[in-house]
Amino acid sequence: MSALATETLNSLGFAKPPSQTRVVVAMSGGVDSSVVAAELAREGYDVVGITLQLYDHGAALAKKGACCAGRDIHDARRVAEEMGFPHYVLDYENVFRDAVMDEFADSYLGGATPVPCIRCNERVKFKDLLETARDLDADCMATGHYIQRKMGAAGAELHCAADTVRDQSYFLFSTTQEQLDYLRFPLGHLESKEDTRRLAAKHGLPVADKPDSQDICFVPDGNYASVIEKLRPGAAEPGQIVHADGRVLGDHAGVIHYTIGQRRGLGIGGLSEPLYVVRLDVEAKQVVVGPKQMLSTRTIPVREVNWLGGGGFADMQEREISVKVRSTRPPRAALLRPLSETEAEVELLTPEEGVSPGQACVFYETGGTRVLGGGWIWRGR
């Protein structure tokens, strides 16, 4: 691309004026997406705000910190009115339940530890909502995620946010190349959340001081088990808490109450050594506990791989990368071995503790910020 052509691109990367560039903004009602919409509207873009009603969760409707509920729809609408652009609310409750909530419940019942926010981005926001944006003849769709989209030699690339504390790359690894070509993430370059709040205050947005959401949106009190019991009544069956050496240590009310690596709240006090949940045996209805060293994992099987690193994934040779096995952990050095277009084996150079089926294993460029994709951790064959 010539220097002249580069100069004529607007801030979203299109060779036309902002007023002729339609952008759909996914608005959750929080400060992040509100700032994106306000900034783009102020720059003169043809902004259309869309909020998805994903669930109707009684107490959540009036609870601060839960997204996409009644309060948040109201807040998104107020921002649109303040900034003078159209705003629509789409009822996606059935889609969200089928694509996200049901799998969340079934995964827990299967002894896994799911990450529903990734599935929501993958199956609802970046699929159905993105298609709606195309139907509206939008040139692109923008979100308030903290991640960067950069142009590389072969096209759009996904990179970590400038603010490592707010970086959401772990939750967006399944973004496809086609989606990435259409998406924009205007907040990814900001150095801190305070920068976002300052922009909100500059625009006089009513959500400038709104607290960040902390919980999974349909689990606003953090009680996963109660939600699963509502979705799958009677599915949580009691069983035994068993030591890895075979000793029966106690009883439990259902494996849904436990996660790999859990130490507190096991209800088996009085033992001489600290014990952790090392395995959930759903068929035997057993929560298996053991010493901390049993949590150490070096080899991780992953499937449903989404590869953003270019070229055919299955044809790639073993490659040195960095990986995250939990959103809150820093990337660790690893070797990536493709087994097929959608399956791989990841070997951690330093063992990790508490690697759990159902979590994501996200691939990063060694020593860089580029997100190369990722996959879902499973138990293997």
Rank of each mutant, 00 (worst) to 15 (best):
Y224L: 04
Y224A: 10
S226G: 08
S226E: 12
I228N: 00
K230T: 03
K230P: 00
K230R: 14
L231D: 04
L231E: 03
R232M: 04
P233H: 07
P233S: 05
A235P: 04
E237N: 03
P238M: 02
G239V: 04
G239F: 01
Q240R: 12
H243F: 09
A244H: 13
D245A: 05
G246Q: 08
R247E: 13
R247W: 07
R247C: 07
D251S: 13
H252K: 02
G254P: 00
I256E: 05
H257I: 00
I260M: 10
G261F: 02
Q262T: 04
Q262L: 08
R263E: 08
R263I: 09
G265P: 02
L266A: 07
L266N: 08
L266G: 07
L266S: 01
G269K: 12
L271I: 10
L271E: 14
S272M: 06
E273L: 13
E273Y: 11
E273H: 12
Y276F: 14
Y276V: 04
Y276I: 05
V278I: 15
R279E: 15
R279S: 14
R279G: 12
L280M: 07
D281Q: 10
V282W: 03
E283R: 09
E283L: 11
A284H: 12
Q286P: 10
V287I: 15
V288K: 00
V289M: 06
G290V: 05
K292T: 03
K292V: 13
K292W: 12
M294V: 11
M294R: 15
R298I: 14
R298E: 15
R298F: 08
P301Q: 09
P301T: 05
V302Q: 00
V302F: 02
V302A: 06
V302R: 01
R303V: 10
E304V: 07
V305H: 05
N306D: 10
G309M: 10
G311T: 09
G311C: 00
F313A: 01
A314R: 13
D315W: 07
D315Y: 01
D315I: 02
M316V: 10
Q317K: 14
E318G: 12
E320D: 14
E320Y: 10
I321R: 05
V323A: 08
K324L: 07
K324N: 06
V325P: 06
R326V: 11
S327L: 11
T328K: 14
T328A: 15
R329W: 15
R332N: 10
R332K: 11
L335T: 08
